[in-house]
Write a protein that binds this DNA or RNA. Sequence first.
DNA 1: TCAATAGTGTCTGTTAGACATTATGGA
DNA 2: TCCATAATGTCTAACAGACACTATTGA
Lengths: 209, 209
Amino acid sequence: MPTLTLDVAAFAIRDDDLAVLMRRAGARWELPWARHDGGALDQAAARLAREAAGRVGWLSLAGAFDETDPHPANASLSLAFAALVPHDAADAVPDDHAWRTLGDRDRLQARQQRIADAALALVRDRVDRAPVAFRLLPAAFTLAELQRAHELLLGQRVHKASFRRSLDAAALVEPTGEWRTEGRGRPAQLYRLAKRKRRAAPRSVRFDY
Amino acid sequence: MPTLTLDVAAFAIRDDDLAVLMRRAGARWELPWARHDGGALDQAAARLAREAAGRVGWLSLAGAFDETDPHPANASLSLAFAALVPHDAADAVPDDHAWRTLGDRDRLQARQQRIADAALALVRDRVDRAPVAFRLLPAAFTLAELQRAHELLLGQRVHKASFRRSLDAAALVEPTGEWRTEGRGRPAQLYRLAKRKRRAAPRSVRFDY
DNA sequence: TCAATAGTGTCTGTTAGACATTATGGA
DNA sequence: TCCATAATGTCTAACAGACACTATTGA
């Protein structure tokens, strides 16, 4: 009989960079995981993510990995979940948990490395299909923060004027009416994610590979 | 202890439309499934798909579904796989298997309906990220066939000139040198999928939602 | 010759990206 | 005043889609 774990790779923006949540396991670090013995999968994954990362903005299955690679629980199968945490909620993690840089994921055991990789790839792949970048931010954010979240997920710089034009064309955000002063420079207006109005008819077939 | 199945939703082009592979189970129809008791997941899924659908061009995990919905095996968990079958290989399926129209998937039990839906959504979502449309075709194909495969997956018409321009810009296909006469009309040149040369730097951030 | 399909050239409106400029705060 | 950041306007090259046209076969 197979033993099954749920493993979650949670990401948040820390110190202007992407970070992944790990927990201490003796002398090592691991991704949060829990045994699964049946029942509602989504709820079990949500519970695991919430206990480890606090408020979770987004959660999705990212893959399944077998005993080809070693795992902290030696489970015969592990379901990988990707989670995104708003950075204002990322401070309150349990004592034995910590946000670590992406480079640190090579400290994980092989299966959890692959889980973290798959989770990151899933999130990156979905940036332009679903509002995942928003899930790294609080409900109200500046356009500079939103752009930076996209840049961190995409791994490349984004053109400011084009970014804002696209946001405007898609009617994706709406101003809250509030402004935020951050050090020096002109204050930035705060925005929130707007409700979907109409989905734009997609342009032509693209070959992004 | 949870019982686990692998379920595969295999798609192919039949009669100029997308079809999904089902097998007879008594008086009902079901998606091909098999119990899984550990071992290499990808290999087990590939074996299941191959036994049901013959040559399989593409296979990918599409989701995981729990006992919230009924399943032919009453498994507590089912891993959904999406498979694509080239239409020239789709004739040789076992006697108790048949290619059925997409509309027939509401004859499946609820969990397998969701599996088929998730598999179809996955394939559609990946059309512009990976050469999945090619996996519905033989190694050599006409551009009209390739365009039709994209149209079936995307569920909408595609502009011929733009489609070919994009193919050309991406250097995605190369002519085999052979031509095919099909009834009346000018013969069509045959193409094959070209090896990736350079991945074009993706354009700006797009919000396709 | 006609019908049918393959394949291409041209035009136009839209958009991405470069660049510059204005706006508004703190030091 | 100077500097840093926000926000926007203008220009251009690239591209998507419409349309028409040529090319090549079978009936």
